[in-house]
Computed example of a mutant assay.
Amino acid sequence: MTDSNHPLSRVRLTNPVHLLALGFGTGLIRKAPGTWGSAAGAIAGVIFLHFLTPNSFLILTALSFVLGCYICQKTAEDMGVHDHGSIVWDEFVGMWLCLLAVPTLSWYWVAAAFAVFRFFDILKPFPIKIFDRKLESGFGIMIDDILAAVYAMIVLRLIAGVVM
Rank of each mutant, 00 (worst) to 15 (best):
residue 67 L to I: 14
residue 127 P to I: 02
residue 24 F to A: 13
residue 73 Q to R: 08
residue 103 P to R: 02
residue 123 L to R: 11
residue 55 N to F: 06
residue 18 H to D: 14
residue 19 L to Y: 15
residue 120 F to E: 02
residue 132 D to A: 02
residue 145 D to K: 06
residue 23 G to K: 13
residue 26 T to W: 08
residue 140 G to V: 11
residue 69 C to N: 11
residue 147 L to P: 10
residue 96 W to K: 14
residue 69 C to L: 01
residue 77 E to H: 13
residue 85 G to V: 03
residue 67 L to A: 11
residue 164 M to A: 09
residue 67 L to D: 06
residue 132 D to Q: 11
residue 78 D to I: 01
residue 101 A to E: 08
residue 29 I to C: 09
residue 163 V to N: 06
residue 70 Y to K: 04
residue 65 F to E: 09
residue 159 I to L: 15
residue 26 T to C: 02
residue 75 T to G: 07
residue 93 V to E: 05
residue 50 H to G: 10
residue 132 D to C: 09
residue 89 W to R: 15
residue 120 F to N: 00
residue 135 L to H: 03
residue 36 W to G: 04
residue 18 H to P: 10
residue 149 A to H: 06
residue 17 V to E: 09
residue 101 A to F: 04
residue 12 R to P: 06
residue 28 L to M: 06
residue 160 A to Q: 11
residue 27 G to T: 05
residue 21 A to L: 04
residue 41 G to N: 08
residue 102 V to A: 02
residue 64 S to F: 08
residue 127 P to W: 10
residue 19 L to G: 04
residue 23 G to W: 02
residue 118 R to I: 05
residue 153 M to V: 05
residue 10 R to W: 03
residue 135 L to Q: 05
residue 19 L to M: 11
residue 113 A to C: 10
residue 70 Y to H: 13
residue 109 W to M: 12
residue 63 L to C: 15
residue 4 S to R: 01
residue 133 R to T: 14
residue 27 G to V: 04
residue 54 P to F: 05
residue 47 I to D: 02
residue 85 G to S: 12
residue 137 S to I: 06
residue 5 N to S: 14
residue 72 C to A: 10
residue 136 E to D: 13
residue 4 S to W: 01
residue 107 W to G: 10
residue 74 K to G: 05
residue 46 V to G: 03
residue 154 I to W: 02
residue 57 F to A: 05
residue 60 L to Q: 07
residue 25 G to E: 08
residue 119 F to R: 00
residue 164 M to S: 15
residue 135 L to V: 15
residue 109 W to L: 13
residue 138 G to F: 15
residue 51 F to T: 03
residue 47 I to W: 10
residue 94 G to I: 06
residue 105 L to Q: 12
residue 93 V to Y: 01
residue 38 S to T: 04
